[in-house]
Amino acid sequence: MSRQHIMQQAEDSLRRLQTDWIDLYQVHRFDDTTPLEETLSTLTDLVRQGEVRYIGCSNYAAWQMAKARGVSDLEGLEHFVSSQSQYNLLSRELENEVMPYCDAEKLGLLVYSPMARGVLSGKYKSKSDMPEDSRAAKGEELIQPYFTDANFEKVEAYKELLGDQGYELSQFALAWTLNQPAVTAAIVRASKSHHILDAVEISGWKWTEGLKAQVSNI
């Protein structure tokens, strides 16, 4: 997150996107080898030059975001307006500190992998049962931590709860994420056109407190 790298990557992004500015520019992961003052002052320069409109962070712990906010306040620099992290029915660590922090400081929370890298689509039955064309079968390592007996049991319980409501399990998982009050938006990976259509279909599905409670009890 040094000045040299940020400036170079911002220019590269502008060139690839063929645009004059980036609406939201987020730094990916906390860099403990570069002073936060350097990172934030560089991002502030990009904003003041008109190349970036807002800045955010990704995969920061709550204390790291708080430290960045303190530096921005002290030095008169731009503040992070968003935080991007993994969050889904099988990975809820954000609820401990990150979500309360974002809620308290009014940061937008953009969550990725709302379907747990496909595990919440229901296509995986066990560690040994992988569709041939799936990411897991192709060797994706990031999906492996989700392959636990406890998670597969939860997936089956979510299927049972979904019942005959007329939605797919993937839609159910995405809707749960969007119904969390601290979540601003969910980033969905789509390899087929119907994935986008499925997401649009449930984008306005408002859950009752009863349904939320049932899911939390699984």
Rank of each mutant, 00 (worst) to 15 (best):
S121G: 15
R48T: 14
D149I: 05
H195T: 12
K154M: 06
K123G: 05
E209R: 09
N151H: 06
L90G: 00
D32M: 07
S72E: 07
A186P: 10
P131M: 00
A10Y: 08
Y146A: 02
L107V: 04
Q214H: 08
N88V: 03
M65F: 10
P181R: 02
W21T: 11
N59S: 14
V188N: 07
Q18W: 08
V47Y: 05
S216P: 08
N88L: 01
E140N: 14
Q84E: 12
L110R: 03
T19A: 11
Q86P: 07
E93C: 06
V81R: 07
S82N: 07
D103H: 10
A199W: 00
R69N: 11
A62I: 07
Q86W: 07
E75R: 13
N179C: 00
L110W: 00
A175P: 10
W21Q: 12
G166S: 09
S91H: 11
K212C: 02
M130E: 13
K159M: 08
E105G: 08
N217Y: 01
L161H: 08
E78L: 04
E168R: 12
K206Q: 09
A61M: 14
P131L: 00
E160M: 07
P131H: 01
S82R: 05
G118P: 13
Y54N: 14
G163Q: 01
Y124C: 07
A68P: 00
I218K: 03
M7V: 15
R92W: 03
H5L: 12
E51I: 15
E156G: 14
D45E: 15
H79A: 11
E78P: 10
Q180I: 01
L120K: 05
S85R: 05
V52M: 07
Q86V: 10
M1N: 14
I218T: 04
A137I: 08
N217M: 12
Y158P: 12
L174D: 03
Y167W: 09
D31Q: 06
N96R: 15
L46I: 08
Y146L: 02
S2D: 15
T42K: 09
R117Q: 12
S2A: 14
H28E: 11
E209T: 11
S121Y: 05
L46K: 09
L197Y: 13
W205T: 07
D149A: 12
F80C: 03
D31W: 10
H79Q: 10
A137K: 13
S134Y: 03
P100S: 07
